[in-house]
Amino acid sequence: MRSESVTFLEQLLSAPSPSGYEQPAQRLFREYVAPYAEVSSDVLGNVYGFIAGQGKNRPKVMLVGHSDEIGLQVKYIDDKGFIYFAAIGGVDAHLTPGKVVHIHTAGGPLPGVVGKKPIHLMDTKDRETVVKLESQYIDIGAGSKKEADKLVRVGDCITFASGFTRLQGDRVASRGFDDKAGSFVVAEVLRLVAEGKKKLPVDLYGVSSVQEEIGLRGGTTSSYTVNPDIGICVEVDFATDQPDVERKHNGEVALGKGPILSRGPNINHGLFELLYATAKKEKIPVQLTANPRATGTDANVMQISRNGVATALVKLPLRYMHTPVEVVSLADLEQAARLIVAVLAHIRTQEQFLPV
């Protein structure tokens, strides 16, 4: 992966963006795609990059990846200055105790730690019980509520203090790959299209959406705004090449083996086949997964927006989803962008995706 792209990815992952608080990441997305596309935003916070194609009666194609990540939010400050919090999105209560966090205040990020009773003071039953999130608390070192109130407000968002870490080969770890990896791929597609020698036969909208983790909200509104004929959602999916994941239920998915193409009722059959055939032609490795119901992604709301959209889902293998140490292969992200760019050149009309 080119160094400028890696730098952008690292910056995107470092920016705090729990659902509803995405603008630090969205500002980076806007800045990155501005040289390549016509950029706009909406009142919910979605960011759109538009590149016009050439030819008559061009179909509108929308790419979407969401920029929001899971996180926490300040709920209550007690008399001693300890801060109680709630989850934004699907936060695992197993993971939070003992973690360093950043509270994003009006004065900037404030470090804190999620407290944990020492194991020496716990009885056997306590050791086998997960402490509910509502009973966990953050220690910022304040000596009183009055002191904490000067620094923190109820409603401030909180992220885990975990950064971009290089592992072996092209594997990297960070919080927030779900789904800043998808937002990153959308940005890379816009860049590659703009730098290409030929204009596409489609009008392309690349969207970095918001509030996906709390109900596909930005995907709903951005799909309505764009009103696309064809849509491709870029998301992450469970890698099953770690020791403790059941393949019979989740399928066979590995890091470094290419992007994943989803199949099922949420996916337009013609668009899937075009993606699959293009991957073969371009010698891009792909993996397949089955989703027998609507997916829990922006592809779900995109498909049923207005009078319906021919929708596909390109996913990125991810280990340790919804933890502060999500792991991906950079090659999978590159291959996903390559595949989408190649597919766009083969889209002519919405009619080619009508069920027959």
Rank of each mutant, 00 (worst) to 15 (best):
L318E: 04
S223V: 05
G296T: 03
I284N: 01
Q211C: 07
S41W: 01
L13G: 06
F85G: 02
I88W: 02
K125V: 15
V152S: 06
A290V: 15
G115K: 10
G45W: 12
K132M: 14
Q54I: 07
K80A: 15
L354S: 09
I119M: 02
E351A: 11
A345Y: 15
G231H: 06
Y205T: 06
S209L: 04
L72E: 02
L110N: 09
P16T: 11
L271Q: 07
P324Q: 07
E195V: 01
I140N: 08
E213C: 08
R127H: 08
L167Q: 04
P109Y: 12
K315A: 15
V189I: 08
S40H: 08
G71S: 05
L110D: 05
I214M: 04
H120V: 04
V101P: 07
A337V: 00
L28Y: 05
Q54P: 01
V253S: 08
E31M: 02
S208I: 07
P118Y: 00
K281C: 07
T165P: 01
F177P: 01
A337W: 01
N268D: 09
N291W: 15
V91E: 01
L271S: 10
V327M: 04
T297Q: 02
E134T: 14
H322T: 11
T96I: 05
K132T: 14
N250Q: 08
L9D: 01
P259W: 02
V309A: 13
V47G: 06
V327L: 01
I260C: 00
D139S: 06
L12V: 02
N227L: 09
S223F: 07
V74F: 11
G71T: 01
L13S: 07
Q287W: 11
G49T: 10
T323C: 05
D332N: 00
T295Q: 02
T124A: 13
G270R: 09
T289F: 14
D139V: 03
L95H: 06
A52K: 14
V154G: 12
T240A: 10
L167D: 03
P259T: 06
A87R: 08
L192F: 01
L216W: 10
P59Q: 07
A294K: 10
K116E: 11
S329N: 14
G176K: 01
S41R: 08
K125I: 14
K117L: 10
E195L: 08
V91A: 09
M302D: 00
V114S: 08
A239E: 00
I51L: 14
Q287N: 12
M1C: 14
T225E: 13
V327D: 00
P35I: 13
H94F: 12
S305C: 12
N57Y: 10
K198S: 14
K257R: 10
F160T: 04
R58A: 00
N227Q: 12
D68Q: 05
E282P: 03
G218L: 03
L271I: 13
C157E: 10
R348F: 11
P24D: 04
Q335V: 00
V114F: 02
T289L: 15
I138F: 12
V309F: 11
V74C: 06
F184C: 07
A25D: 05
D244C: 08
P111E: 12
E38Q: 12
A345D: 15
T225Y: 11
Y76W: 15
E38P: 03
P59I: 00
L200F: 07
G308I: 04
T221N: 11
V74N: 11
L151S: 04
